[in-house]
Design a protein around this nucleic acid. Structure first.
Length: 423
RNA sequence: AGAGAGAUGGCAGAGUGGUCGAUUGCGUCGGUCUUGAAAACCGAAGACUGUAACAGGUCCGGGGGUUCGAAUCCCUCUCUCUCUGCCA
C-alpha cells in the first residue's frame, strides 16, 4: 500500500507510475484518494476539538465533585450532552471515511522503479542478459513429460487419483532429486548468509493482507473455510509476515531469511496451452529468500539476490536469461522485478524459475514493519526471490541433459542425489 | 473436544471509576566514577494521528455498551495458558 503523505506530496510521480502500469482510471482514483484524505483530516480535526472540550469538562466536573459542589457539577454535566452527540457523529463519519479511503488505497498498485521499462505485456519485458549455451539435442530427444514416464520418476495419474490434476507424485529418483535440489538451494543460501526458517504453510487473513495477496489475489489461494486459513502460494507470505507489526532495532538489519516450503496455487483460469507436465502445478516446492533492508540499501540487495539466483543456475549448468519486467507485467506489489528463465531445450522455450522483487515500502506499510533510523521511525524495504522453484528446474534438467543412455545429473547435485544418471 | 484462568509499554508485573500514557523490577540508552569495564549512583526513553511548529486527539487483545469521566464496570469476539481427553 502506498503511503498517504507520499501520494499527497508526489501526485504527479504517482500518476506517472500508474500510467506505466497501465492502471485504469489513475487520475480519478488518485483524486478520490486526495479528496477522502482531506475529508478525513478535516473531520479528524473537528472530532479532536470536540473531544478536547469534553475532556476539559470532565476534568472540571471531577474537580467540582471533589470540592463537594454537587450543584455546579450537575450543571456542568448538562453541558456535556451536546458534545457527546457531536463526537459520536463525527466519530462515525470519520470511520466511514477511513473505510472508504482504505478501500481505494488497496486497489492501487506499487509505483514502478524508474528503471522499469515501458510496456503492456510479457512481450515488452527487457532482456537484461543471457547466459550459458543452449544444448542441441540428439535425434529423438523428448520433452520432460515423456521422460518422466520413460524413467518412471513422476506419476501425474496417481496424483489425480489422490488429489487431482496438478498434484504430481514423485517417485524413486524423482523424489530424491527433489530432495537434493531443496538441500542444494538451502545450503547455497546459508553460504550466502541467510538464516534458515521453517514457517507454517497455512496463514491467516492478516498475513495474506500484509504481503498483498489479499485482497488482490483472493481467488488464487486455497482456503480452509473451517479455520479461515489460506494455503500459502509462496513462502514469501509467512516469512515476510514474521516481521509484521515489528519495529526492528537498527542493529538487526538487514534481515536475510531463507525457507523451503511447498507452495499451493489454484491457478484458476490459467490452464491451457504450455501447461503440460511440470510447467504449471497446483502444488510445488520452492526455496525462497526474503530480505528486509534499509531503504538506501534495497536496490543493492536486489542486485545481490539476482546474482545469487544466477549463481545457482550457473552451478546447475542451465542456460538462462534475466528479464526486467515491464510496467504492464509486474506484480501488484512490486517496484522492480527480475524474472529468471531457464531454457527448456525440448520445448524450445524459456521457463520462469525465479522472480526477484523489491517491494520498497509497499508491503512494509501494510505490515507496519519499521525501524528507527537516526531517530526517525521509518518503513523498511522488503524483498524476496525464488531461489529456486523446483518443477521447471527439474523439467529443464531432464530435457537439457538427456542422452540416449539417460539423464545426466549436474555435477553439483551428484553428492546431494547419490546418483549420476536417471536411467 | 470439555473445564477453568488470563490478555497492560522490549520483557516481567502492579493498577477495580476522576491529573493513569499508566507504580515497580529487569533490559536499553546517556552521564558520573574508573586506565578500561563491572558495580554503584544520577538521568533519558512508547506508538499512531495531527500542526509550519506548538497545541490537541487516539492507543492498556478486537468490537460494542454504561458514565460527565473507563486500563478499571457490563456484553461480545478472538487469542493464550493450565488441567482433562486425544494424538505425530
Amino acid at each position: 500500500m502506498l503511503q498517504l503523505p507520499f501520494i499527497r506530496e508526489n501526485k504527479e510521480a504517482v500518476l506517472t507510475g500508474l500510467h506505466k502500469r497501465h492502471f485504469a482510471n489513475a487520475e480519478a482514483t488518485i483524486d478520490q484518494v486526495l479528496t477522502l484524505d482531506q475529508q478525513r483530516r478535516d473531520t479528524q480535526r473537528e472530532l479532536d476539538d470536540t473531544l478536547a472540550q469534553s475532556n476539559a469538562k470532565a476534568g472540571q466536573i471531577g474537580a467540582l465533585m471533589k470540592a463537594g459542589d454537587k450543584a455546579a457539577a450537575d450543571a456542568a454535566k448538562a453541558e456535556t450532552a451536546e458534545l457527546k452527540v457531536r463526537s459520536k457523529d463525527l466519530g462515525e463519519t470519520l470511520r466511514q471515511i477511513e473505510i472508504d479511503l482504505q478501500a481505494v488505497l488497496v486497489t492501487i498498485p506499487n509505483i514502478p522503479h524508474s528503471s522499469v521499462p515501458e510496456g503492456r505485456s510479457a512481450d515488452d519485458n527487457e532482456v537484461v542478459l543471457e547466459n550459458g549455451e543452449k544444448p542441441s539435442l540428439y535425434e529423438g530427444a523428448q520433452p520432460h513429460w515423456e521422460l518422466i514416464k520413460k524413467y518412471d520418476i513422476i506419476d501425474f495419474e496417481l496424483g489425480v487419483k489422490i488429489s487431482g490434476a496438478g498434484f504430481p507424485v514423485y517417485k524413486g529418483k524423482g523424489a530424491r532429486i527433489q530432495r537434493a535440489l531443496i538441500n542444494f538451494f538451502l545450503d547455497e543460501a546459508l553460504k550466502a548468509g541467510y538464516l534458515e526458517v521453517q514457517p507454517p504453510i497455512v496463514v491467516n487473513e492478516d498475513s495474506g493482507f500484509g504481503t498483498g495477496q489479499l485482497p488482490d489475489k483472493e481467488g488464487q489461494m486455497y482456503y480452509v473455510t473451517e479455520d479461515k486459513l489460506y494455503l500459502i502460494p509462496t513462502a514469501e507470505v509467512p516469512i515476510t509476515n514474521l516481521y509484521r507489526d515489528v519495529i526492528l532495532p537498527e542493529g538487526q538489519l538487514p534481515i536475510k531469511n531463507v525457507g523451503y516450503t511447498p507452495c499451493f496455487r489454484r491457478e484458476a483460469g490459467s490452464w491451457g496451452a504450455h501447461v503440460r507436465g511440470l510447467n504449471r502445478l497446483h502444488q510445488f516446492d520452492k526455496v525462497e529468500i526474503v530480505r528486509i533492508e534499509k531503504p538506501e540499501k534495497s536496490y543493492a540487495a536486489l542486485e545481490e539476490m539476482s546474482l545469487h539466483v544466477q549463481g545457482l543456475l550457473q552451478k546447475l549448468e542451465l542456460p538462462y536469461r534475466v528479464l526486467r519486467l515491464c510496467g504492464g507485467d509486474m506484480g501488484f506489489t512490486s517496484a522492480l522485478t527480475y524474472d529468471m528463465e531457464v531454457w527448456s531445450a525440448a520445448q524450445q522455450r524459456w521457463l520462469e524459475v525465479s522472480s526477484v522483487s523489491n517491494f520498497e515500502t509497499y508491503q512494509a506499510n501494510r505490515l507496519k514493519l519499521r525501524s528507527k533510523l537516526e531517530g526517525k521511525m521509518q518503513l523498511m524495504h522488503t524483498l524476496n526471490g525464488s531461489a529456486l522453484a523446483l518443477p521447471r528446474i527439474l523439467a529443464s534438467i531432464l530435457e537439457n541433459n538427456q542422452t540416449p543412455e539417460g539423464v545426466r545429473i549436474p555435477n553439483v547435485l551428484v553428492p546431494y542425489c547419490g546418483f549420476e544418471m536417471i536411467d
